Computed example of a mutant assay.
Amino acid sequence: MTTELSGTTALITGATSGIGRATALALAARGAHVVVSGRDAGRGDQTVDAIRAAGGTADFVRADLTDAASARELASRSTELGGGHVDILVNSAGIFPFGPTADTTQADVDAVLAVNVTAPYFLVGALAPDMAARGHGAIVNVTTMVAEFGAAGMGLCGASKAALVLLTKSWAAEYGPAGVRVNAVSPGPTRTEGTAGMGAALDQLAAAGPAGRPGQPEEIAEAIVFLATDAASFVHGAILPADGGRIAV
């Protein structure tokens, strides 16, 4: 374990599985006190146990992130657990439904926008001003490659994450002058619990990129860690593709 992030607190949403979990483990391994957030308390406890077994520090906070109130409560609880400060925010929680537009319900749209747009918006609103007051902080949003181009059946997910792309740039302009860096990572097809149901379609989607394979959560997490640390001290408002080169074709 390194001490690069010793003394910092990192809040990761969607941290009980997939990219979020890999990010929590990676930031904890660099010395951050990690607040693991998600809906499943069992998986949350397992993530915390894994971090602690490796010598790290972590706590779990259950959050549904269905509205502004739940986001603000998570921010408050994380600040309390962090000894009065959250230095790194990773908005990794996301819903990514696939399917025809005609089959999409109002409830589907509301759920996707709540988790993918509303929750990050109010988490940043709750945490970024304190980061700015301290003169430092890092926020990393997790978007998706389908926020950058049209793909049949992926419009709702892509549109919600496209909103997060714009918010990333807006927040960089708003908070960057006070020392808070806001950036995003745009993953391509990644093999996680959430994409397990895609089956062969995931491999087919990944085959279009130069890497020719789906990514692993740990590979995306390393890109997030880069943007969250001082290694990216001169990076503001960037959208870093971690998509196996899909952006190149």
Rank of each mutant, 00 (worst) to 15 (best):
A119K: 09
E80R: 02
N141M: 07
A58G: 03
D103H: 00
V146T: 12
D67G: 14
H136V: 07
I88F: 08
A119I: 05
V117T: 10
E80V: 09
T101A: 14
R77H: 05
T144E: 05
D110Q: 08
A126V: 10
M145V: 09
V117L: 15
E73A: 13
A71N: 12
V117A: 11
A138N: 04
G135C: 15
A138K: 02
A68N: 02
A107D: 06
R72N: 09
V142Q: 06
G94R: 14
I88N: 06
T79R: 15
V109A: 02
G99H: 03
G56C: 14
A126E: 14
D130M: 15
T104M: 12
A147V: 04
L74F: 05
A93D: 08
M145Q: 12
F98S: 11
A111F: 13
D64H: 13
T143E: 06
R134E: 04
A75M: 06
V140W: 00
A75Q: 13
N116M: 07
A132M: 14
T101W: 00
V112T: 15
F60R: 01
N116S: 09
T105N: 10
L127T: 08
R134M: 07
D103E: 14
V90H: 01
P129I: 10
S70V: 12
R77E: 15
G56E: 02
L113R: 08
D59S: 15
Y121N: 05
A107E: 02
H136E: 03
V109C: 10
A102G: 01
A93N: 06
D103K: 02
T118W: 09
F60T: 10
A107I: 08
D67E: 11
T101I: 02
G137T: 13
G94Y: 07
A133N: 12
I95G: 04
E73I: 07
M145Y: 12
V142Y: 09
L123R: 04
T66V: 15
A75T: 14
T79C: 08
S76C: 06
T144G: 09
G135E: 02
F60S: 08
P120L: 03
G150I: 07
R134G: 11
T79S: 11
T104P: 11
I95D: 04
Q106E: 07
D110A: 08
A119Y: 05
A114S: 07
V142I: 15
N91S: 10
D110W: 06
T144M: 08
M145I: 05
A119M: 02
N141C: 11
S78P: 03
P120T: 04
T57F: 00
R62S: 10
T57M: 11
A114N: 01
F98K: 12
N116Y: 10
A63P: 07
G82Y: 12
L74Q: 07
L127R: 08
D103W: 01
V86Q: 09
S78V: 07
T79N: 02
P129F: 14
P100C: 01
V112R: 09
V142K: 14
A71S: 15
T104W: 06
P97H: 04
T101C: 11
T79L: 04
A128R: 06
A119W: 02
A126I: 05
N91F: 00
P100Y: 00
E80N: 00
A114T: 08
P120V: 05
R134N: 05
A68D: 14
V140A: 11
F96Y: 13
V90F: 10
